[in-house]
């Protein structure tokens, strides 16, 4: 199914509406990717959901990425949204500082966001303001760190039988 929307058209439309909030526009592998100021993300997603032309109303995926060396922009929140009417996909990003990684929740727009946000909190420690039940979901509650952050090891710390030299650590 061919898409009726073009990357350039959608980017221009969003820029016209949210001019100052759009930090950058890119199209890697033919997918419109926009960086948005974190405090405007919720409004933008709400707007593209309700806009009569865009109708980008399906939340495909949301998740975090950790860039420890990027000062002030340590965490990225990445949202993939999809318009089924127009068959158009868009990727939205917001960068958050390590001191206070927080962004508004999407649970009021999409029920699907609930667990994905809990998972992102569980993995990265990103806070979602307004989330109804922001607790760990996959790991046990007693865990005291956020395992997907780059500084933590993948391996189970209790193994003694593995020789590091053979495992490239």
């Amino acid at each position: 199914m061919e898409s009726k929307l073009t990357n350039e058209g959608v980017a221009a439309k969003i820029q016209a509406q949210f001019g100052a909030a759009v930090v950058s526009v890119d199209m890697p592998y033919d997918m419109l990717t926009m960086e948005i100021a974190a405090d405007r993300m919720h409004d933008l997603i709400e707007w593209i959901q309700s806009d009569a032309e865009l109708k980008i109303g399906f939340l495909t995926l949301l998740g975090g990425v950790h860039y420890p060396n990027d000062k002030g922009r340590e965490f990225a929140m990445v949202y993939h949204l999809h318009s089924w009417t127009n068959n158009f996909r868009i990727r939205l990003k917001a960068f958050l500082p390590a001191e206070n990684p927080a962004i508004a929740t999407l649970t009021d727009l999409y029920e699907a966001a609930n667990w994905m946000e809990r998972e992102t909190y569980d993995f990265f420690g990103i806070q979602f303001n307004g989330h109804p039940n922001l607790v760990r979901i996959l790991n046990e509650d007693s865990m005291d760190y956020f395992p997907m952050r780059k500084e933590y090891h993948l391996e189970d710390a209790t193994r003694e039988d593995k020789d590091d030299r053979y495992f490239g650590r």
């Binding site: 996959l138 790991n139 395992p147 933590y152 090891h153 993948l154 391996e155 189970d156 710390a157 209790t158 193994r159 593995k162």
Partner: peptide, 12 residues
Amino acid sequence: SGGIFDTYSVLQ
């Protein structure tokens, strides 16, 4: 033995 999942969450 934990198999390929030598990870923080899996019992070894």
